[in-house]
């Protein structure tokens, strides 16, 4: 028995280690390349720090915002988006997990099916919607900080990204609510607390791991977002650019692309997320609400 099992285990380990090594080598190359003039295989053909010079001086001239400004933009956008995703998904998931109402089942299957819609092809219709929203007074254009919720505003971009993140968020949060025993909630309700208060004061503190996990996922999605900010921020790419758009400035078919600088900027974009992940990995691992059934 034991003897027969060994090759199987060895094979499994091999199947894990070989592809893992491939990733490791790839990222090693990325790292080496960002400090090199050119590379051949994993060998640097000359070391340099110049690829990282974007950190202290804009490589594109004074007309361009500095990398730190862009980073701040990206941070603000990702945080706004994360906040909305968490609040909205947990509200929805709470209702789906704890309340009976007409259309509950269809709503659940719908959120899953929504995922079947390729975001890219909805871009033009979403543009029409954003234009309509723009025309609503105050909300459309006049919100401070966000600029509004319409076309060409940070708020609008964040909102669209929220929409694409919601199906996943709702399902994850529902799994967590499903696994909380309802005794606690019931006694609060009996004491006369409103459903809203119960959700906010009793349920939310109990699903902290779920909130953390979803926050991390949403934040990473926002941090790396490219297509949506690109499409819905006309001509503001220079000023309210996010990191992915900034990176695009280095790449071009028609003129020399500084691939080594691209590697450096890419790593710069990656590092905060990796650090973030190292601190939160335990929470991320809790994304599954547990239990045998009804999870996620």
């Amino acid at each position: 028995m034991r003897l027969r099992q060994k090759p199987r285990a060895a094979l499994a380990y091999l199947a894990l280690i070989v592809p893992s090594a491939l990733i490791l080598v790839g990222f090693l190359w990325l790292f080496i390349t960002s400090f090199s003039i050119r590379t051949e295989g994993l060998r640097s053909l000359g070391w340099t720090l110049s690829n990282w010079s974007f950190l202290w001086k804009s490589p594109f001239g004074p007309q361009y915002p500095s990398i730190w400004w862009v980073t701040l933009n990206t941070l603000v956008m990702s945080l706004i988006m994360t906040l909305i995703v968490v609040v909205v998904s947990s509200m929805t998931a709470y209702a789906l997990s704890r309340m009976k109402f007409t259309g509950r089942k269809s709503f659940l299957s719908l959120t899953l099916i929504l995922h079947a819609f390729p975001s890219v092809t909805l871009l033009i219709p979403i543009y029409f919607v954003l234009i309509w929203v723009s025309k609503i007074p105050v909300i459309g254009r006049g919100v401070p900080l966000l600029g509004g919720l319409g076309y060409n505003t940070i708020g609008g971009v964040a909102l669209v990204m929220v929409a694409f993140q919601l199906p996943f968020g709702i399902w994850v949060m529902k799994g967590f609510f499903d696994n909380i025993s309802w005794d606690m909630e019931r006694s609060a309700l009996i004491d006369g607390a409103s459903r809203f208060r119960v959700w906010w004061e009793i349920m939310m503190p109990n699903i902290k791991p779920g909130i953390a996990a979803l926050s991390i996922f949403s934040f990473i999605t926002g941090w790396n977002a490219y297509l949506i900010p690109l499409t819905f921020t006309a001509g503001r790419a220079g000023k309210s650019a996010v990191l992915s758009l900034y990176l695009q400035n280095f790449i071009s078919e028609s003129v020399m692309t500084e691939w080594n600088a691209v590697a450096a900027v890419g790593l710069f974009q990656l590092i905060p997320v990796v650090i973030f992940f190292l601190f939160t990995q335990q929470m991320l691992l809790n994304i599954y609400g547990g239990g045998k059934k009804g999870g996620v």
């Binding site: 609040v87 909205v88 998904s89 509200m91 929805t92 709470y94 209702a95 309340m99 009976k100 109402f101 509950r104 709503f107 959120t111 929504l114 819609f117 909805l122 033009i124 219709p125 979403i126 029409f128 919607v129 929203v133 909102l159 669209v160 929220v162 929409a163 694409f164 919601l166 709702i170 459903r195 809203f196 959700w199």
Partner: peptide, 22 residues
């Protein structure tokens, strides 16, 4: 239930259903 669903419903209607019809 519907007050809890409202935010999601608004976002999904605006950015999924209407676009889908379009």
């Amino acid at each position: 239930p519907y007050t809890f669903l409202a935010p999601a419903l608004i976002v999904i209607t605006l950015f999924f259903f209407i676009p889908l019809v379009i």
